[in-house]
Amino acid sequence: MIELLLTVFSATFFVTVVRTTTPLLFAALGGLISDLSGALNVALEGMMLIAALTAVIVSVYAPWYVAVLSGVAAGAMLGALMAFFHLRLKADIILVGFAVNILATGGTVFALSRATGGDKGTSINLPSKAVPGVDLSFLEAIPAVGPTLKSLLSGHSILSWLGVFMVFAVWYFLFRTPYGLWLRGVGEYPAAPEAAGIPVAKVRAWSLVASGALAGIGGAQLAMFNYIGFTRDMTAGRGFIALGAVLLGARHPVGAMLAALLFGIFEALAIVMPNLFNWIPGEMIQTIPFVVTVLALILFSYRAQRARQMRTLSKI
């Protein structure tokens, strides 16, 4: 137990948490935007998976930032595809989302075997690149706290820093710009913005595109920083966990970030625990993020329900 505490309160663990949280954070922000616009995006998983593969394949031929951008573009295109089928052709958003997920699980394996010449498991024989880390070793020069600061802050992926910035950017967009107001209005009560002359379908379509783009960054981080290269089904439920983070985050970017952080911590725990407790079977440790998601979801929904009931009661 002591070892576990020592590990958890070490700088390396913090770095692992940041690494595991980043993909979840981007996907959760993406899910938040589309959820606020009134379309629950269950395709985060598939978008991340396709973006991850796109980024890996492009990174073989182009610099890392082009690869990340192509992952973003892939996610955005899937968002546009969902918008087209959901808004123009009136298909149910959840069914459309699962169609994207099905396309992703099979399509990535198909594309992977095409790109690698028959390998259906990993992209190990493709020389793919990584997102560079941000080196902040100059912080060490600060007296007293320098080395600690350096070990905590140096070496994170550029995308992790972008993630922190995105939380702020999404918050600013949603709560301080007119478009953000439109978006929330469309999700809250579409008839009102419709009457005010706001193009409801357009707002929803763009929020799905933005949602896909954000999930795409998450996928790129996963395949170009957390792991270098693509493996079959590498998202392993992260998109769905991110969806849980959206629901858990009280429909607020900061809430989504905290929820993503919570799940990131438990994912990091699942990474470090096998070294500490070799008597616990690996599969059981791997279930931790999923179990935590279910429990957190139930607990939070219960609290939200209670709060609603209290509000109604106080009105009477």
Binding site: F240, G244, T287, F290, V291, T293, V294, L297, I298, Y302
Partner: peptide
């Protein structure tokens, strides 16, 4: 509890497989 059945059922899938 009002917990979304989509997320919880998907999580339970992963748990069952593991």
């Amino acid at each position: 509890f009002g917990a979304s059945e989509i997320v919880s059922s998907l999580m339970l899938n992963y748990i069952a497989i593991l």
